[in-house]
Design a protein around this nucleic acid. Structure first.
Lengths: 107, 107
DNA sequence: TTCATTCATCGTAAATATACGATACAATGT
DNA sequence: ACATTGTATCGTATATTTACGATGAATGAA
């Protein structure tokens, strides 16, 4: 049995199995789809706030690579970054993690 | 609740390097890092069991592409496939999803 | 100013991901 | 035996990811 919403007749509903929330979930999941980025999230959770250099010290990756991973996490909304002088302070965005938990719960 | 000395970090756990569980989490997350694969998981959840062709019918992708996504999900352990005559029956592996929830909870 | 520090970005090379059509292959039907 | 059906896999083209060193921008100290 197929349940179509009665309210909004889609414009060509033949192949609409991929939903908006699928893309939202996939974006968050993809951001966590690399071990280094998971480690960064754990580190931020433990530290609360830290600067980029602290993460570089702990990971077996070049500074530019860590910065790239941080950018990925930032673009997905999982972390927030704030410039503080020559440093960059990073911290988690708990709302994004919670959003991922909700979406995973719906799955 | 955690009182770490600010000065000299203890010898053992100062390094929060990339852990085994980070890779495990990342593998599951990466498998869900594409909208089509999220849609497949949703479809399997709704259908319980279905053959490859049913998924091909509802996704705007070629059969070979869907088969490739299914392989990715299978390699991550998120779905199980079993051949039934000329068909392939797929279903979810709830344990893998639960594992992901646990790992995400720890995060 | 000049130098050092901190980080983001650029340029790039290698690896992986994504998509498709074509093909192979196994099981069933005629 | 032969064709049909449902999938997996191959080959391939393009796009993205991942990693690094080099460079640049911004700040603070000398």
């Amino acid at each position: 049995m197929k349940f179509e919403p009665l309210c909004c007749p889609p414009t060509g509903d033949a192949k609409t199995a991929i939903q908006e929330s699928d893309a939202e979930f996939a974006q968050l999941a993809a951001a966590l789809g690399h071990p280094a980025r998971v480690a960064i999230i754990r580190f931020l959770k433990q530290k609360g706030v830290c600067i980029c250099g602290e993460i570089v010290e702990v990971l077996p990756l070049a500074q530019s690579t860590v910065s790239q991973h941080l950018k990925t996490l930032k673009e997905a909304g999982l972390v927030q970054g704030e410039t503080d002088g020559p440093r960059s302070c990073y911290c988690l965005n708990p709302a994004a993690l919670e959003r991922l938990r909700v979406l995973l719960g719906d799955l």
